[in-house]
Design a protein around this nucleic acid. Structure first.
Lengths: 343, 343
DNA sequence: CTGTTAGCGCTTTCAA
DNA sequence: TTGAAAGCGCTAACAG
């Protein structure tokens, strides 16, 4: 059996309260402090966190509910969030929603049952209803990467619309006008699509509906199928904006399979600086999300919310995502003139 | 405040013990059962898992300690393990060791402190010492994917040596004799290296030391640097065996950068059927580890160990990993004869 | 600064 | 079957 605080009491002859106080960093006469430390070492004592939680009502555990843990994106986010939280003595309970809203609702309930102190959430759903159990239990949640239809929650994202707009501006700056977009109807997909439209409108370019490919959820299949369709068009696009990592992978699969060269035959611009865009040839030009900042800023806000409750209004942090130049976009000659670098 | 069992008592007039018994699936008169169920619904009662844990000494939480959570490999393993465990009411506490043995030891202590019921471990270290705190606390651990130097622990791996041997046999069967290997000195890297050597020996092929590239840890850098070195050799290898996912990525980077074609100029064979090998052109020929089986088999053994203690000996499960043919290996003509498909 | 005491919410004897 | 009572290991008044 593991040693308890009572064993320390028996060993030192001190009262429980004194020992507890020492354990929690209170002031204890140095003579007693020494006694306690000796006893702890001798008995190899470790506080029972469960007992502690029962009385403090704090588990020092954060739930990490994520739409799809198998994605490289989630893994990197998880890495940074867990580093931040561990450093501060918090554990992380992981719940994979597997791209399923039912599962996501179930995961929130699970976290409530497990009495986590707070939830970090990369959501699959856009409707806030599923968060009710956490709300009722007084457990705060911070949204990462994706918003929901409610401004009651803290939220850390990038400015998706603006980032996509800059990416599209970039293509237009290189002379492209036939630009297709592949997006999902999820939050990020839609936001990025909006940015694309804004850029095209600004440039006075009409967007044929055939250049707009979408599906309910981001996936490699979406990228693959969409690209295959685009390649069959009589007037092929000269450039494609993909609004997500997995979608880019699918697009590349299709190009490889069809023997289409990038950027010679078609230019590409995507999102997320994960391992693949670094490895592929040509290097993908992309919008790089600040992964570590998203994770640590989200965790920081969550801990603050846990400490300070509703004493401050919901935070909505929008981080800047830089466009990183690769080799996947080429110049288009317009009117015999190389239109390069209009930007 | 959340409702407690006492509120149910007040609502129903029954004793605490009866209610507790109902909660734990015991026999209760159907009349009382109904009363309790009504009260639970009315008060929106949820058992306090912390209080429960304090008396049962079970947290229904499993620690998942992983060498590197950012890797796609870990993400997929995590996905399957978490699905298996959640289904059975267990939560998963994630601890990233970030390829650091100190951090790994720290993670084990953290899990012990948090009183997890068991640990699923993809280890960075090979020495079993760091597991002592778990052992002392009576917390079982199951090793996934990688063994350590101790046969006291349950362990689920693939037969790494044999898989690498088959992969090398395959290359030799296609006529290759100048075959290089890139491996790490971690468990899996070494095992796979051993298999490579066995195959080469079996075929009577002498291995020049320049064809053996290694480093302490698997990484894309290892793959990249090794491949760059191999390309500079006077007698280049005609094929390369990479013993890990990240290493393969690095190799591909180097080939792309140098404009070396695969499989025309060099053949490649790797490990792990994750997203990249599916997307790249040519499709990588590889050893596919049964990810879901590794995870669920490991979790199954762990839960059994938690239930039944040391009533059965340490399990050492070695799963079969199939070689999946891609397009990254070409035939080599030997003595004017196409040596294809000797296997 | 120290110790006594009363719980936190639940399970589990044990006697009825 | 049921319920009273003891206690899991700890913290937090409170009195000394």
């Amino acid at each position: 059996m593991a040693a308890t605080i009572k064993d320390i009491k028996a060993e030192t002859g001190l009262g429980l309260a004194t020992i507890s106080k020492y354990l929690n960093g209170g002031n204890v006469r140095s003579e007693n402090r020494q006694k306690i430390e000796e006893a702890i070492k001798k008995l190899d004592y470790h506080p029972n966190e469960t007992a502690r939680s029962l009385v403090t009502k704090r588990t020092r555990t954060i739930g990490f509910v994520v739409n799809n843990i198998a994605s490289n994106f989630s893994g990197v986010l998880l890495q940074h969030a867990s580093a931040y939280l561990h450093e501060r003595g918090y554990g992380m309970m992981i719940c994979d929603s597997n791209l399923d809203e039912k599962q996501e609702a179930e995961n929130i309930r699970f976290c409530v049952e497990k009495q986590v102190d707070g939830i970090l959430l990369v959501t699959a759903s856009r409707e806030p209803g599923f968060l009710a159990p956490a709300d009722k239990a007084g457990i705060p949640a911070v949204l990462l990467d994706r918003e929901i239809k409610s401004d009651a929650f803290d939220c850390v994202t990038i400015d998706n619309s603006n980032a996509a707009e800059r990416a599209t501006d970039y293509l237009i700056g290189y002379g492209h006008r036939r630009i297709a977009v592949i997006h999902s109807e999820e939050y990020t997909g839609n936001e990025r699509y909006t940015g694309y439209l804004a850029s095209m409108k600004k440039a006075g370019i009409n967007v044929p509906y055939k250049y707009i490919c979408s599906a309910h959820i981001h996936s490699a299949e979406l990228g693959y199928n969409s690209m295959m369709k685009l390649l069959k068009l009589k007037e092929r696009p000269t450039a494609v904006l993909t609004t997500n990592y997995e979608v880019s992978l699918g697009v590349i699969m299709a190009l490889n399979e069809q023997g289409i060269r990038c950027p010679e035959d078609i230019s590409l611009i995507g999102f997320d600086e994960l391992i693949l865009p670094m490895v592929m040839k040509p290097k993908l030009t992309l919008v790089a999300q600040p992964m570590e900042e998203i994770a640590s800023e989200g965790a920081r806000i969550l801990l603050k919310r846990i400490e300070e409750g509703n004493s401050f209004p919901p935070q909505r942090v929008s981080l800047y995502a830089a466009l990183k130049q690769g080799e996947s976009v080429r110049d288009i000659i317009v009117n015999g003139k190389n239109n390069c670098r209009l930007l």
